Amino acid sequence: MSEVRSVAQRGDLFGQRVREHCAMQPHRRLDVLVAGCAQDGPLVLEHVETRATGADEDHPVIRRILEERADLASWSLGDLRCVPMPPRSYDVVQVSFLLERVRHAELVFDRLLQSLRPGGLVLLRMRDRGSAYGLLDRVTPSWLRGLLWRSLVPPGWPGPLPAVYEPLSSSDGLHAFCLSRGLMITDELRNTSGPARSRRIGAAAIAAISKLTNDRYPASHDEITMVIRKPQHHFARLI
């Protein structure tokens, strides 16, 4: 069975923000949509009843992982512009390493936001197209990524999944998107978690990209982590 990494079990930023959110509406079940559920498990919070639903692209690797999982109440695979996402049905939407690997990323993100209740949270993790890791990932031919995958990543890591990296998969892209839709970014962090870093050849390639681009594509991080809040008031643009 493939390893699943839960964002809340680390006691990190996501867990803290969701606990604060739950404190404002106690004794209510937390409905969570996990978009990109191949690489993250649903939130696990003590003393909080949670019902998690998964949604992702219909990819053989993803389908195989989800068929072995028991931590989702239900899940849907397919074109994320079309899969069932009832409007205003979730308190939290986890977007886990998804935006960098799908086409029409803005349309997909808009649909995810439509499924979020007013005042709800988006917990977002993605690879940064503006990092050395992101550049290397998106310029490496798919056949070569498939050939090298198992030698570059830890055992059990799902993939290789597509590497699309549309402009939204960057800090500037996300800030512009959120500004245009009246969303509030409450937290933003940059981390290193790319699986290829775990092997010497991958780390060397990332360092070389950074050096060749004069650090325009830095090796200092590869992941962008954000907490985004959907506005509560009626005069905001509701999406």
Rank of each mutant, 00 (worst) to 15 (best):
L144G: 07
C178P: 05
H59S: 08
A23R: 12
R88T: 00
E100D: 10
V95P: 02
L77Y: 06
L123E: 07
D172W: 05
R10H: 09
H21I: 01
L189H: 13
P195Y: 07
L168F: 04
T53W: 00
A55Q: 10
S74Q: 15
V4S: 15
G11E: 13
M126G: 07
A38T: 11
L116H: 01
T225M: 12
W157L: 12
L13V: 11
G78M: 09
W149M: 08
E166G: 14
I228V: 14
M1R: 14
I228T: 01
D56A: 02
W75Y: 14
R29D: 13
V32L: 11
P154H: 11
M184G: 09
R216M: 14
S151M: 10
E100I: 04
I224N: 01
M226F: 05
V102A: 12
R125M: 09
D31M: 06
K230D: 00
A176D: 15
E68Y: 08
E46L: 09
V92E: 00
G146E: 15
G146I: 03
D137M: 07
R19K: 14
D31A: 07
H21N: 04
L168D: 05
R10Q: 14
V122M: 02
S171W: 05
G15T: 03
D12I: 00
T225G: 06
A8Q: 04
R64Y: 12
E100H: 15
L30A: 02
D91Q: 04
A208N: 07
G120W: 01
V227R: 04
V18M: 04
L43T: 02
P154Y: 09
L183C: 05
Q114R: 11
R127N: 13
S96T: 07
H21K: 05
H221D: 08
S2F: 08
C82Y: 08
E68I: 06
H47C: 11
F109I: 00
R88Q: 04
M1C: 10
E166S: 11
R103F: 11
K211S: 13
H47V: 09
R88H: 02
R64L: 13
F235R: 13
D58W: 00
R129P: 03
G36N: 07
T213A: 13
R81G: 08
K211I: 09
L112N: 01
T140H: 11
P141L: 09
D172L: 11
P155H: 10
P195W: 08
R63I: 05
Y165F: 15
R69K: 11
